[in-house]
């Protein structure tokens, strides 16, 4: 635990010492601000809509695909290349603590980014608006859970290579793949199902099964159905927490496997 904390502190402070981070922060703030303002003015001052757009709109999902990849690249692939990962992994902290610390730092960074929407909400409250605070906070929490999941996915993907750009690319592909799971499943199985099932009923049964599984993996859907609506649902919470934990576990295994294979 101590190791995790130490690594977390260093990684987070390391992030904020790099110009890269501030540039990302600036871009995200400017674009999110644009979205928020656009919706605020476009809807004639509808606070809920504007906050919803800035917190959960398409832009958020674009960030969710790009940013974890960049962060994972910095935290894993670049360190692997420069050798600092070797330093960390021979320090008296467990591998998992290192993975966890890095993961927590990346997630915290994204959480700080999403906090901008809370600040918007605060600004509207100051001038007399009335944002639905519990719901807004719930959504904000949700964005953090989503970020955590995708950071974990990105970290796993970037452990497969020591070339930073390739790592970032792999992470991005992994994140997109995870988002596109329901779509992909539908597409792939629409070709495969007729091969397996001969009768109409069997085909339908297969289609239903595939859809069920796909919708179960669908991070976007899970988020839209719960946090976005201001609904705290234990099942959705469990979804995000367990999958994040799984990917972290796999990340630790993958780091280990790299040593094993040399």
């Amino acid at each position: 635990m101590n190791g995790t904390l130490v690594v977390f502190q260093r990684e987070l402070s390391g992030l904020f010492r790099a110009p890269f981070t501030w540039i990302v922060l600036l871009i995200v703030l400017v674009l999110n601000g644009l979205i928020f303002n656009g919706f605020l003015i476009g809807t004639g001052g509808n606070i809920s809509d504007a906050l919803d757009a800035s917190m959960t709109g398409p832009l958020f999902w674009i960030w969710i695909v790009f940013l974890p990849a960049l962060l994972a690249m910095r935290l894993v692939a670049e360190e692997s290349r420069s050798g600092t990962l070797e330093y960390l992994l021979t320090a008296p902290v467990s591998d998992f603590a290192v993975v966890l610390g890095k993961f927590a730092a990346a997630t915290a960074f994204l959480a700080i980014l999403w906090t901008s929407s809370l600040l918007y909400a605060g600004a509207t409250a100051v001038i007399g608006g009335n944002p639905d605070w519990p719901a807004v906070l719930g959504t904000w929490m949700g964005t953090i859970f989503v970020s955590a999941l995708f950071v974990a996915i990105g970290m796993l993907a970037s452990t497969f290579t020591a070339t930073p750009l390739l790592a970032a690319f792999l992470s991005m592909v992994a994140c997109i793949a995870w988002l596109a799971v329901p779509l992909l499943a539908g597409q792939v199985f629409s070709y495969l199902i007729p091969l397996i099932a001969k009768t109409e009923e069997a085909r339908n049964a297969w289609a239903t099964t595939v859809r069920d599984i796909a919708s179960n993996m669908d991070a976007f859907g899970h988020f839209q159905r719960s946090f976005r609506l201001g609904l705290l649902d234990t099942a959705e919470l469990v979804f995000f927490v367990t999958w994040t934990a799984l990917f972290l576990f796999l990340t630790a295994r993958s780091l280990e496997a790299r040593r094993w294979r040399g």
Binding site: D132, G138, G230, L231, L232, D233, T234, A235
Partner: peptide, 10 residues
């Protein structure tokens, strides 16, 4: 097991 907590004021 599933629990839901509605955070919206409405």
């Amino acid at each position: 097991i599933r629990q839901r907590f509605d955070l919206t004021s409405a």
